[in-house]
């Protein structure tokens, strides 16, 4: 069971953060928010912050999956969980990259 968990965790977290950012975007557009943070409109700032958090979580997961304390004893499971770890990270970076530059709420 632990090994299955190691294999599935990173993409699961990707799915959660993908849905969360999509939901956040919907909420921001549904409820007028305004203001400026660090030269960015508030909506964009929120979205980019969420993006950065999502990436950070994936990086932490990868580090954990590679660490000798948390990695699986089976070399095969180690290999697959590393691969899905990278899948989670790349999917997070790739699928949420629109927050950085596309128009929101258009």
């Amino acid at each position: 069971m632990k090994d299955i968990f190691r294999i599935l965790i990173a993409p699961l977290v990707w799915f959660a953060s993908f849905s969360a950012v999509y939901g956040l975007h919907g909420l921001l557009c549904g409820h007028e928010v305004s203001g400026v943070v660090l030269g960015l409109p508030l909506e964009r700032a929120y979205l980019v912050a969420a993006y950065v958090c999502a990436i950070a979580v994936q990086v932490v997961l990868i580090v954990a999956l590679y660490s000798s304390r948390l990695a699986s004893p089976s070399p095969f499971v180690r290999f697959v969980s590393h691969a899905t770890g990278w899948v989670g990270l790349i999917a997070t970076i790739w699928s949420l990259v629109p927050v950085v530059f596309t128009t929101y709420c258009g």
Partner: peptide, 12 residues
Amino acid sequence: IPHMGLAFFSAA
């Protein structure tokens, strides 16, 4: 659906 929403799913 708003443009950015589409962009997420297009990317994925």
